Computed example of a mutant assay.
Amino acid sequence: MLILGFESSCDETGVALVDASGSAVPRLLGHALHSQIEMHQAYGGVVPELASRDHIRRVLPLTDAVLAQAGLPLSAVDAIAYTRGPGLAGALLVGSGVACAMAMALGKPVVPVHHLEGHLLSPFLSADPPEFPFVALLVSGGHTQLMRVDGVGRYELLGETIDDAAGEAFDKSAKLLGLGYPGGPALAKRAEQGSATAYKFPRPLLHSGDLDFSFAGLKTAVLTQVKRLAHARPEGPATPQLAEALDAAQIADVAASVQAAIVEVLVKKSLAAIESTGLNRLVVAGGVGANALLREQLNAACQKRRVRVHYPELHLCTDNGAMIALAAGLRFQAGLLPDAAAAPAYHFDVRPRWPLSELG
């Protein structure tokens, strides 16, 4: 079963081909990705219309590149998967439209995939794939969730953010420090030169007794500290000039202190989820899962508790087509897809807002 997957939910165009034959974990045959970071940097964030237009330009050349890597013609593909949501509506429509049109032309089934399920299952493409059941820390963009995962399609929400997600806290803090877009990696890089104890930022809900997250208060605390360092009025607006008033050492210390606060919350909540479920396996997925400090502290804490930790390969932490094709392949192996012999339905829709809890 050869599955071609398309990812176009935000600012990366991803295409990949996996082989889901037999019962082994689907094997990645080809993978190509184009990031729009350089295009959006001038605006300080993703411009949805520009993102959609760029997906249109990139998706077919990337498909050709993936098929060339695999040494296979398009006619060899057995099914085509695409990201249905969540994400930017216009960007999602590009991937879904191309996937459905291509599948119709080939007379092959089309498989809509949940973007977060793709992230959740992406560690199965790593050199050290997990086994079910496990606890998953999903930290992707505007999502921060802890899930119990008993199998493909068998997900129980343990806790989630009630306001800002971890990725948003990284990005918004980076913007306050004038570190540009994308903010998370830039903040982590600058934090390497700073002190994690320079400023005592709050760890929201750290002792709440549940597994929920909250990072909005942390963002406000960072804004307050930046204004204090810039000698700005507390009630004044957050302007780019604030960061210009800070020296390099101050920026590095704020970055390191912010990162330490976010990582501590993620680590302690993950350990609490492990303890409450009695499981001994943790999967970390999503863009924030690439953060070096998070991996270092999770690895150390879990080693003490004899808990195995699994991550996607670093190049598969961001949005990519491989995770979409993989999710479709694992669903096929689990018997969760419609009969491929049945008449495929090529009408499509997208779901910009789509809770993972609604996925069966």
Results as ranks from 00 to 15, higher is better:
His143Ser: 10
Gly118Ser: 13
Asp212Thr: 06
Gly167Leu: 09
Ala188His: 09
Ala103Thr: 10
Gly184Ile: 07
His119Tyr: 07
Gly209Glu: 06
Ala166Arg: 14
Ala188Asp: 15
Arg154Pro: 04
His207Trp: 10
Lys189Leu: 08
Leu137Phe: 13
Ala101Tyr: 05
Arg190Phe: 00
Gly209Phe: 05
Lys200Val: 11
Lys227Arg: 14
Asp210Ser: 07
Leu158Thr: 13
Ile162Gln: 14
Arg190Met: 11
Ala230Trp: 05
Gly159Tyr: 11
Val110Tyr: 00
Pro185Phe: 07
Gly167Ile: 02
Lys227Pro: 00
Ala191Pro: 05
Gly153Leu: 01
Ser208Thr: 02
His143Arg: 08
His114Lys: 12
Ala186Val: 11
Thr144Trp: 02
Leu218Ser: 04
Arg190Gln: 11
Ala196Gln: 10
Gly118His: 13
Val111Trp: 01
Leu116Val: 00
Arg228Ser: 06
Leu177His: 12
Glu160Gly: 14
Ser195Glu: 02
Gly167Asn: 11
Val226Thr: 03
Val135Cys: 09
Ser126Glu: 08
His143Tyr: 04
Leu187Cys: 09
Gly151Tyr: 00
Ser214Lys: 08
Gly178Arg: 08
Ala230Pro: 07
Tyr155Leu: 12
Ala196Phe: 00
Gly107Met: 10
Leu146Ser: 15
Leu206Ile: 15
Gly118Val: 14
Val226Gln: 00
Gly183Ser: 05
Val226Lys: 03
Tyr199Met: 07
Pro133Ile: 11
Pro185Val: 10
Ser208Asp: 03
Ile162Phe: 07
Arg190Gly: 00
Gly167Thr: 02
Pro123Tyr: 09
Leu187Trp: 11
Gly209Tyr: 06
Leu205Trp: 05
Ala196Ser: 14
Phe215Pro: 07
Leu138Val: 15
Glu160Cys: 15
Ala105Phe: 01
Ala188Lys: 08
Leu187Pro: 10
Phe132Cys: 04
Asp128Phe: 05
Gly184His: 05
Thr161Tyr: 14
Val111Leu: 03
Phe213Ser: 06
Leu121Pro: 06
Ala101Phe: 04
Glu117Cys: 12
Phe201Lys: 09
Lys189Gly: 00
Ala196Arg: 13
Thr224Asn: 03
Leu179Trp: 02
Val226Ile: 06
Asp163Arg: 13
